Simulated scan of single mutants.
Amino acid sequence: MRTKDETEAEVRVGTGAGSEDAPVRFDTKIAVLLRDDLEPWQRLNVTAFVVSGLGTASPEVVGGPYADADDTTYLPMFRQPVLVFQGTKETLTTAHARALSRSLATAVFTSDLFSTGNDRDNRAAVRAVGKDRLDLVGMAVYGPRNAVDKILKGARMHP
């Protein structure tokens, strides 16, 4: 398992400027923040849901399609690591307010969404509550590395 420092420092890929081993540095960050009292299945479900919106709002986060040696093609994925953090309900509420104040691309998942079963009802559940009263259990944010770091202040890396 990679440490936070190893993950955040550099990602080596075959698109470097002079060498296939040249490091690729990202000036942006994709981060997920989960409430620390979720069940394991809920953590996975929330993470999958909240990251799914980032590529639609910020297409530059998505890389090119994949292909294996047999030319079987696969869907594109994010071009950079997704860092997953956890925190208390209060940490999540504070991070949400910080993300909105910086106008960063943000996706949210509220506790109400565990009892809905489709996109229409999910959107209606979020729409029914003001931003300051959302019972957040997870969020994803994408933006400049320094801004995302400030938003996540007080959160810790997910184990």
Results as ranks from 00 to 15, higher is better:
Thr93Cys: 03
Lys89Leu: 11
Asp112Val: 01
Ser52Pro: 03
Glu60Gln: 12
Gln80Pro: 00
Ala67Lys: 13
Val148Ala: 11
Asn146Arg: 08
Gly87Ser: 06
Asp21Pro: 03
Gly117Ser: 12
Asp36Leu: 09
Asn118Arg: 04
Gly14Ile: 12
Pro40Leu: 02
Lys89Pro: 06
Asp36Phe: 06
Ala22Asn: 06
Ala17Asp: 04
Val82Phe: 02
Leu134Ser: 04
Asp71Thr: 06
Asp5Asn: 15
Val11Pro: 01
Glu6Gly: 09
Ser101Gly: 07
Thr7Lys: 14
Gly55Met: 10
Gly16Arg: 04
Lys131Ala: 12
Arg120His: 07
Arg79Asn: 12
Ala69Asn: 08
Leu136Ser: 07
Lys4Leu: 15
Leu83Asn: 14
Leu100Pro: 02
Lys29Ser: 07
Asp119His: 10
Glu6Thr: 06
Lys153Met: 05
Gly87His: 03
Pro159Asn: 08
Gly63Met: 03
His96Leu: 01
Met77Lys: 04
Arg43Ser: 14
Glu10Pro: 09
Thr72Leu: 15
Ser58Phe: 08
Thr72Lys: 14
Gly117Thr: 14
Glu20Ala: 13
Asp132Phe: 00
Ala97Tyr: 01
Glu6His: 10
Ala48Ser: 10
Val62Ser: 04
Val24Gly: 02
Arg120Ala: 10
Gly14Met: 09
Asp149Leu: 02
Val24Glu: 06
Thr3His: 06
Pro40Ile: 04
Asp132Cys: 00
Ser115Leu: 07
Arg25Pro: 05
Gly143His: 01
Asp5Pro: 14
Ala125Gly: 07
Thr116Tyr: 07
Val82His: 05
Ala31Gln: 02
Ser115Ile: 03
Asp71His: 05
Val126Asn: 07
Gly154Ser: 05
Arg25Phe: 08
Arg156Asn: 07
Glu90Arg: 15
Gly16Pro: 03
Ser58Asn: 10
Met77Gly: 09
Pro76Tyr: 10
Val148Thr: 03
Ala99Leu: 05
Glu39Phe: 12
Ser111Ile: 11
Asn118Ser: 04
Glu20Arg: 14
Tyr74Trp: 11
Thr73Cys: 08
Asp112Pro: 01
Lys29Ala: 09
Val61Gly: 01
Met1Ser: 15
Thr110Arg: 03
Pro144Met: 04
Asp119Glu: 12
Gly138Phe: 00
Arg12Glu: 00
Glu60Arg: 08
Leu136Lys: 01
Ala147Phe: 01
Thr116Pro: 05
Arg127Thr: 07
Arg79Phe: 12
Ala97Ser: 11
Thr47Asn: 11
Ala97Thr: 10
Arg98Val: 09
Lys29Thr: 02
Ser103Gly: 11
Asp70Arg: 07
Arg102Ser: 15
Asp70Ile: 03
Thr91His: 05
Tyr74Lys: 07
Ser103Cys: 07
Phe109Tyr: 15
Asp68Asn: 15
Arg123Pro: 00
Thr47His: 07
Asp21Gln: 14
Pro76Asn: 10
Val62Asn: 05
Met77Ala: 11
Ala67Gly: 08
His96Val: 01
Tyr66Gly: 13
